[in-house]
């Protein structure tokens, strides 16, 4: 479904991604973790070409993302992305946030778009807030709306970049619940997150990155259970993260 082959990228002489290779099957839920600055965000943003790459190949289905002739907007329309800071459009109501791209990119009528918007707002438990503006919602609510906005586009895969890191602790759960439901319905997901509980319970694979390289890429069961087989850096990281 998604193939990443030998992908490298650097800013000047500073390498951000070092020959990363992995693949994600349909329905997989992959958690990407690693220390700050290790290139996690950069890696998932290469999948919808928000981050251009310098070498290597990226395939989403049979679309070559690395190919400059590919219609990138068409690809992006079906790759959902959720950001750390939600990035709802503050000048638009919740419903308008959900319908904008459906209308302008997918060419849906405004009726169709609202109907679908409402459906996904219901799914994330936010239907009652459809007329509000983002600034009137809590962080957790904003993030759920952001997930609904991505789902409205019928994504083939959902990318999450630290979706709960900017949230107050009491709101983390509501967002993880939505993601868990999504996973159980068979959505293909790549999640950059430090929520190891989520990784253990929901994901079926864990990728650990450090200094721009993929150090570990294994089933989440193995990642947590057979820690003696993990690299020292991954063990270090896990110890730090699980200790608080």
């Amino acid at each position: 479904m998604i193939k990443i082959k030998d992908v490298s990228k650097s800013y000047g002489s500073f390498p951000v991604l070092k020959s990363c290779t992995t693949s994600v099957g349909k329905g997989d839920v992959v958690v990407i973790c690693g220390p700050s600055g290790s290139g996690k965000s950069t890696l998932i943003k290469t999948i919808n070409a928000l981050e251009p790459i310098q070498s290597g190949e990226i395939w989403v289905g049979d679309t070559p993302v690395h190919d400059t002739r590919t219609d990138i907007t068409k690809l992006r329309a079906h790759v959902g992305m959720v950001f750390q800071n939600f990035e709802l459009f503050p000048h638009l109501s919740v419903m308008d946030n959900l319908t904008l791209a459906q209308i302008k990119v997918l060419g849906r009528t405004s009726d169709e778009a609202s109907k679908r918007g409402l459906k996904y707002l219901e799914r994330v438990g936010m239907a009652a807030h459809q007329h509000k503006f983002p600034s009137q919602l809590s962080g957790g609510q904003q993030q759920r709306v952001a997930i609904a906005r991505a789902l409205c586009m019928d994504p083939v895969v959902m990318l999450f970049d630290e979706p709960t890191s900017a949230l107050d602790p009491e709101m983390v759960g509501e967002v993880l619940d939505v993601m868990t439901t999504l996973a159980s319905e068979g959505m293909t997901m790549l999640c950059v997150t430090h929520e190891m509980g989520f990784a253990r319970r929901v994901s079926n694979r864990v990728i650990f990155m450090d200094h721009g390289a993929i150090i570990e890429d294994c089933s989440s069961k193995d990642f947590f259970a057979k820690s003696e087989e993990r690299s020292p850096r991954a063990r270090d990281f896990l110890a730090k993260i699980l200790s608080h």
């Binding site: 928000l50 790759v79 959902g80 950001f83 503050p90 302008k104």
Partner: peptide, 27 residues
Amino acid sequence: LPRGQTQAAQALGLSNAQVLRYVILPQ
């Protein structure tokens, strides 16, 4: 405006002109 606004709009498949027209300039 935060850079994330542009990225979020692009991630939805909006073209550069649409990003400006519907997301960046109004704000």
